[in-house]
Design a protein around this nucleic acid. Structure first.
Lengths: 264, 264
DNA sequence: TGGTTCACTGCCACATATTGCAACATCAAT
DNA sequence: ATTGATGTTGCAATATGTGGCAGTGAACCA
């Protein structure tokens, strides 16, 4: 149904919607009473407006009005709460692969952050990461030397990326790397959202003695556009629940070992 | 725009939550009484708000209010509480020197972090910093491009330092730089605790179009071992209270202008 | 032109959510 | 241990949300 198809003399509804969205993007939230007063219409009308806009996912309705979906909330902090338990298990399994004295690379992402949190009992490690949160956390763990890779910060990942990051990475001799990924595609490969991300992970596989992907179940069978180069040379994929047999088989054909964290 | 200037007659719950989180990230903690007064609602309502945000792990509730989560960081978080008000004033004064479109360098330290917090209303800036916290904060401000300088992380400063950092710094063309320092010595010079810190600041003075030191009163008249090279070429020193006349005079003889933040 | 349709709106009644108040329990600091 | 401030809980008051219904006016058609 298109509200714009007809143009009555007083085309008030679309005008209200425009104004509502404008206010929303300026202030982050609007109240029904405030809008009803402004347009001089009843509260019910405003609520119907908000309902329509909400159906189009233009805003979220709250008691008393409406609010923008992501006012100023970092994407990361939302994602980090999803499947927190699974990520913790993966983190522990991953940390179990690390031996004292190693040089460890930690990719950006919420699952690798869980690995960092599970690493607090290890000693005498050199950690290399592009993630601000991982660096901030691990630098306070005694006996850990943290090297932050520089570069332009991607707000969504809260991590450095780009040419400077690739450049800095290349200087390290890494014993073990833990990498995130956008998806574990049905044909058993890790794929990514962006060219830069895929490239960075592919390079790290080549650079590190052993490279493990850490992926929670929400990534299974999804499809993202970029294949990670060198994927078949990765040492393993650490997950929190058993994937479908077909997926597990596809993965094993590629090479990397499947490690299911909840068996430990 | 001052956050205290507007008084929403009756705020929507999400609007309160936004403001609470904003204050929290700016000041580190909020009190129930202060918020109840600001929003003109009862303390119970504020407590319910804090409970909700706490359930979402957005903050921690303490007696009398709420505090930001800071898992484990002894050094920095203690220092940032010291003279928080003075640092906020310095931050505002410093931010006032920045024009939209500039390339800004922010040194590590608690006072420069206050500058970063005062920068949220500026737009179209490129910010370059070695501080993890500053990068993490500013990367979520719309219209800001943040470049993190890589290097080994100093846990006390929560910032990168060392040869890699100096190296990365040299690639930037910086319009304005805000630098911390260990002390403002009695003879009117900024001095530092470490060779690496002094060297890094000295280089930035040479590199930046204008370089300002930001120092709160606790640094006055102290003595630390390393002189900052090029200090006389710095544009100014921003402080929160008037220093002793002898100190002010010594400083003015060196060259940099003295800017006292509380006069603004 | 006149009649009909239909989207839009406002009003009403009732359901639900949020808030403030007051009484009581706790905490923190002498 | 006392005291003032803060946290908690139940309850009543108010504000807000929902669905039904009828009036309005524009659009459409004969």
């Amino acid at each position: 149904m298109s509200p714009v198809s007809r143009l009555p003399a007083r085309a008030l509804a679309p005008r209200r919607h425009d104004e509502i969205l404008k206010r929303l993007s300026a202030q982050g939230s609007v109240s029904v009473a405030e809008l009803a007063g402004f347009f001089d219409v009843s509260r019910e009308t405003i609520r119907r407006d908000l309902k329509m806009l909400s159906d189009q996912s233009m805003l979220g309705i709250v008691h008393g009005g409406a609010a923008r979906f992501e006012p100023s909330e970092p994407a990361m902090s939302l994602r980090s709460r999803e499947n927190a338990e699974g990520k913790t298990m993966i983190g522990k399994a991953a940390a179990g692969l690390i031996k004292d004295g190693m040089v460890v690379f930690l990719d950006s992402g919420t699952t690798t952050l869980a690995v960092a949190h599970a690493m607090t009992d290890l000693r005498d490690l050199t950690v290399c990461t592009a993630s601000l949160k991982i660096a901030l956390h691990l630098c306070h763990v005694p006996g850990m030397r943290v090297h932050m890779l520089g570069g332009e910060i991607d707000p969504g990942e809260e991590a450095a990326s780009g040419i400077d990051t690739l450049d800095a990475m290349a200087r390290f001799r890494v014993d073990i790397a833990f990498l995130g990924g956008g998806a574990l595609s049905p044909d058993g490969e890790v794929t990514d959202f962006t060219r830069a991300g895929a490239e960075q992970r592919g390079r790290m596989i080549a650079l590190a003695g052993k490279a493990f992907f850490v992926l929670d179940a929400s990534k299974f069978g999804k499809l993202t556009p970029l294949r990670v180069p060198n994927f078949e040379r990765a040492a393993g994929v650490i997950v929190d629940v058993d994937p479908a047999p077909a997926l597990a088989e596809a993965l094993s054909r590629k090479g990397p070992k499947l490690i299911v964290a909840n068996l430990m």
